[in-house]
Design a protein around this nucleic acid. Sequence first.
RNA 1: CGGGGUGUAGCGCAGCCUGGUAGCGCACAUCGUUUGGGACGAUGGGGUCGCGUGUUCGAAUCACGCCACCCCGACCA
Length: 487
Amino acid sequence: MVAAEKRDMGQGLANKESDFPGWYNDVVMRAELAEDAPVRGCMVIRPYGYALWENMVANLDRRFKETDVVNAAFPLLIPQSFLLKEAEHVEGFAPEVAWVTVGGSEELQEPLAVRPTSEAIIGPIMSRWIQSYRDLPVLLNQWCSVFRWEKRPRLFLRTAEFWWQEGHTAHATEQEAEERTRLMLEVYRAFLEEEMAIPVIPGLKSENQKFPGALRTYTVEAMMGDGKALQAGTSHNLGDHFARAYDLIFLDEKNERQFAWTTSWGMSTRVIGGAIMVHGDQQGLIMPPRVAPHQVVIIPIWRKDEEKTDVMDMVGRVSTMLKKAGVRVKVDAAEHKSPGWKFNEWELKGVPLRIEIGPRDVQNSSVMVARRDRPGKEGKEVVGVDTLNQRVADLLDEIQKSLYRRALDFRQSNTRHASTYDELKQAVEERQFVDIFWCGDPACENKIKEDTRATNRCKPLDQPGDKGKCIVCGGESDAHWIFARAY
RNA sequence: CGGGGUGUAGCGCAGCCUGGUAGCGCACAUCGUUUGGGACGAUGGGGUCGCGUGUUCGAAUCACGCCACCCCGACCA
């Protein structure tokens, strides 16, 4: 009776349907991904959350290097004068920069900004490295944290300090810079869809929404479980704006001085929040297998002490076998917690596969396998030890694919084309992605925002090619744009 | 920055209105029985009641001031 009542209460998480923000916060805290730091607006990424981030970093880093990008590290602090050199850039970031004004006991002559992003320090440094067209392109990346004095922080989604990578490249031609900008957008798309199982819409940001100082900004936009949008990564073509500000000048083949063309691109720990909001359910997290800290958790079960030896012996053999096959395995042999408690705990933490091993399994040389994305009996199956390696590999692959498929179906069934302003308002109210014709006039964009709180997400790269009338002013439009409420 | 709220044990809370030796649940520790969907009993440890000033014989409780954090809006990866 007691057990039944407690199970009805589920994991004790806020209801995902009626209180999505509360559910999100509960999952982050209870799954031990992160918690609030004793510093305003900052978070602590706990070991389980950091293990996820490490897997993401390793994968993204490999993908960057496949495109000839190399890593480096630049200073945390940026002299004020550096930041002031690019007018739009400083204007965009001024409200959220934290300043260091005292060093030890001395008042600094020049305040130092805690980097909100590093264009302003990498630009000047790069300029020292670039003399000739032969020095180009420069393809740099750094993994670091940055700091922005955010008014309203939320774990992973918007914290004062956050961890990310920022890529910075310089090129001899405008076209080459544009190609690099698009290439990195494609790296983000592939990473998000293949590793994180998060379907995204690659596209161009509006002038209003682009990065301060950029020529143009590309984005990958994802739909969260409540229908709101999350910008999961951005890639900026900076034109020659920063080259002019920071003297990135090289001599070309004709011995003429030219400004370089630069790009920057970033993806952050925010994507962790995205994965939670895309894949999670009422039981908690569901980790995409390819980046999950533990892909399989093994839970030993025994009644009497004399069973323990045999069970633990088999747990050891199975665990070793799976690890040798390259699977990330966690054995939860804690004796002070019941199996039921462990089932719930690891479901909350989103481990894709659970393997139960008890006396019965020792007898039959088999194990019980349960998949996280199909709770209940349908998701459980008995697998013989001799075929376990293959079955686990197949199941992990299936779960990865089905998470992606589920997310894509959700986005597609919550995306709608609107041809009248009322339809637009209605769709936004229902938390849909709305596909509309827009003329490009910021006035029309602002009106939509004021009326509906939906913002311009992007002009998808993938365009049907037809023409239409702007949904606000009726002016000519040759492109579909996505509008939605966003995080 | 505007609007609302909360600070009491590691976590979640009650106590405050009506001042009188600081409590409950979970967690933690020891022992025993348990373990295939969140086990149970016994015993035990743990608190400058956010900070300061005031009122009072006496303040978690009343008054004033301050601080911190959370939620809802405008801004952002």
